[in-house]
Design a protein around this nucleic acid. Structure first.
Lengths: 221, 221
DNA sequence: TAGATTGTTAATCGATTAACAATC
DNA sequence: TAGATTGTTAATCGATTAACAATC
């Protein structure tokens, strides 16, 4: 496997490749070429080959790629084939939704426990994941060394909670709080799910398409 | 206001500017320079000025930008100051979470109704938003012309539901189904929230940081 | 005025796409 | 073998950053 700095753009395309290959695999497709992938995914074939070549040589001239083999390679690059421990902090509505519906295992994680301050939640379980009181958070992290913390607490306590899990040794934070976290420990990886950023972008494109529709000719300046 | 094709990268930064300016405004800050914004947001000052200049001239030499005025300009560009109708399809856990917790209004939308097939949900309301039976979806769209449909249905019926709302006249789809939608009507704007793509990227960076930590010297090839 | 900061043009940097020899 | 398709190098394209005249 090669090394060197891989650009963020490449990393963000890998999950899409993985999903696509999972689908092919599910439908029993055995081989695929970069050209076929490109046309079905709306990408450029050169780009796909470039992306793969950051990590090794997975194809064969004149044939293309073996779907199953390529799928496993990309899963491995992303760590989707691992089983790392994860915890969830903030077992409110959103937290429980993720506990119940999100497939952590397909991303290489196993959700071990959730934490909340509400005593009426403590002691319950959602999809076999127990909810503990937040007072046990630090001890649990020290004992179980989870790689990931899912942050679904209210905005108000987002920063302190992020710092708490980072101090206790968590290496990655999946942040749903819609706050830009500047975690004190600089080697912690933070990935944000910003619902509102996404919807605002959509809103822009909606406005733009209305504008285009309203001016069919291409109005001069 | 200028025109011309604005790059996607610029559009994706606008919501971040808006949040930052909202914060400044909330804290009573009256003026800000591109340099201050850059250092606090971890961007480049030239980039910020370039981004703004796509849409007009909002600053003043020697002074910088008036926070309130800039905030309103960007909100207007994104449509965050509007009040467009939206509906939600699929009032399960995730759907209800969004109905209850997400601030649609701050993104320029008003959630008017939700739809589900489960009769035990029909008739209920979440945060004043009523849940109707999915049989009334088409009629409701024709009558109320919502600009946006939030798609929180199960994967299985994602494609058909997306096509249904598009056919009935919805212009934008906020897609939470983790399926890549190819909506038949090509002028429909689809914005995906792909939880697993996000987590897989995080997983990659976690692996990478472990690798770096394990090889402190910079191993030669 | 002197200092600061914009908007914009030019320079640099990086990412995407095209081209093609290698070879299955 | 002939056709197809890779991996990679080179060319193009676009985005970011630097520089600076204009001017508040």
């Amino acid at each position: 496997m090669k090394r060197g700095k891989i650009s963020n753009n490449v990393i963000r395309r890998l999950p899409r490749y993985l999903h696509f290959l999972n689908d092919l695999s599910y439908h029993g497709v055995v081989r695929v070429s970069s050209g076929e992938m490109a046309s079905q995914m709306g990408l450029n074939a050169s780009q796909i080959r470039q992306d793969f070549s950051c990590f090794g040589e997975f194809g064969q001239q004149g044939y293309g790629y073996n779907v199953e083999m390529l799928r496993q390679e990309i899963a491995s690059i992303l760590g989707a084939d691992q089983k790392r421990s994860a915890i969830l902090v903030g077992a409110g509505k959103l937290g429980q939704t993720l506990m119940g519906n999100f497939d952590f295992e397909s991303c290489g994680f196993v959700l071990k426990a959730a934490f909340d301050i509400r005593t009426d939640l403590v002691g319950a379980s959602v999809s076999q994941v127990p909810i503990y009181h937040i007072d046990f958070l630090q001890d649990f992290i020290r004992d179980h060394q989870p790689a990931l913390a899912v942050l679904t607490v209210p905005r108000r306590i987002a920063v302190e909670t992020a710092n708490a899990v980072a101090d206790a040794g968590v290496r990655g934070i999946w942040n749903f709080t819609n706050i830009s976290l500047n975690v004190a420990k600089s080697d912690v990886i933070v990935e944000d799910i910003h619902f509102s950023d996404s919807l605002l972008s959509l809103s822009y494109y909606l406005k733009e398409s209305e504008r285009d529709a309203g001016e069919p000719k291409g109005t001069p300046t």
